[in-house]
């Protein structure tokens, strides 16, 4: 069976789409056949972040309504083998996403031998977000070190534990993983930002990785290149670690301490 990963957060703007694109690309880069699905019906953006916005012909809702076959809607990534994108539709009819329809698409992906399906959830706790998490085996909860984000993540964890398929059917619960994004160790050090430990204390789920605040995230989305393909920037490295750790490798956490500034910068900066 393909593993279904939902990337979720409750709050908007914390990096769900960036994370979905990076994780899916990272998994495919490691040779795993991976699909990434945009569940943000009416406000699709995964296509822009993945750089395939001009190749969208059919979308998720077209497939669910039987207006197109899955293979017509799946966009094969031009850079990475094994990577496919299923864009959201721009229709305003959010109820177009039915549970049966989503299930049928996931089953078809499974039949086609996809090992991982990454579901990029919309913000909020409305229909689209519930559909994105319903079938999940794993949840990557994306959180910023901000009070509002941490609280919303806690809400989402509650929903995962009560309203996912696994919860409803009494199966083994969805496996939860925390990804902290936009982390600034220097500000944490000064006491101006929640630390990873603070967040872990509150949310009490295992840490998958910390993505530091990094210029390359904006540059990557500007260019439509998933940031994990950036081998120089720290965010790209952090996502690479996250994928490795998720696949079971023992990779120590990084980017949690302030960078040592060179002496001159420390004196004059």
């Amino acid at each position: 069976m393909s593993k279904i990963i939902v990337v979720t957060s409750g709050k908007g703007g914390v990096g769900k789409t960036t994370t979905s694109a990076a994780v899916a690309t990272g998994l495919a880069h490691r040779g795993h056949k991976t699909a990434v699905i945009d569940f943000d019906i009416g406000l699709r953006n995964l296509d822009l972040v993945m750089g395939c916005e001009r190749r969208v012909v059919y979308d998720f809702v077209n497939v669910i309504r039987g207006e197109a076959r899955l293979n017509q809607a799946l966009i094969k990534d031009k850079r990475i083998d094994n990577l496919y994108i299923l864009p959201a539709s721009q229709t305003r009819d959010k109820d177009a996403l039915t549970r049966e329809g989503v299930q049928a698409v996931l089953e078809e992906l499974d039949r086609q031998g996809f090992e991982f399906v990454v579901c990029d959830s919309p913000a909020g706790i409305e229909h689209g977000a519930l559909m994105a998490l319903y079938f999940a085996d794993e949840a990557f909860v994306v959180t910023n070190p901000e009070v509002s984000s941490v609280r919303d993540s806690d809400r989402i964890l509650g929903i995962l534990q009560s309203r996912s398929r696994r919860a409803e059917e009494g199966d083994e619960p969805v496996r939860e993983h925390l990804i902290v994004t936009r982390y600034e160790p220097a500000r944490v050090h000064k006491g101006d930002m929640l630390s990873v430990d603070d967040i872990l204390d509150i949310l009490a789920i295992p840490l998958l990785g910390v993505v530091p605040e990094c210029k390359s995230v904006l540059q990557a989305s500007n260019a439509g290149v998933p940031v994990v393909l950036d081998e120089v920037g720290r965010a790209g490295q952090a996502y690479k670690d996250i994928v490795g750790r998720y696949l079971g490798e023992n990779i120590p956490h990084r980017f949690m301490q302030p960078e040592k500034k060179p002496l001159l910068k420390r004196l004059f900066g």
């Binding site: 822009l48 916005e53 850079r79 989305s221 500007n222 260019a223 290149v225 120089v232």
Partner: peptide
């Protein structure tokens, strides 16, 4: 491969790319 060099080189600034794509 061009995309591999994207982050390294002093390419066209990424904001310009973003604007054109949008």
């Amino acid at each position: 491969m061009r995309w591999l060099n994207y982050f390294r080189s002093s390419n066209k600034r990424s904001a310009q790319t973003a604007k054109e794509r949008l």
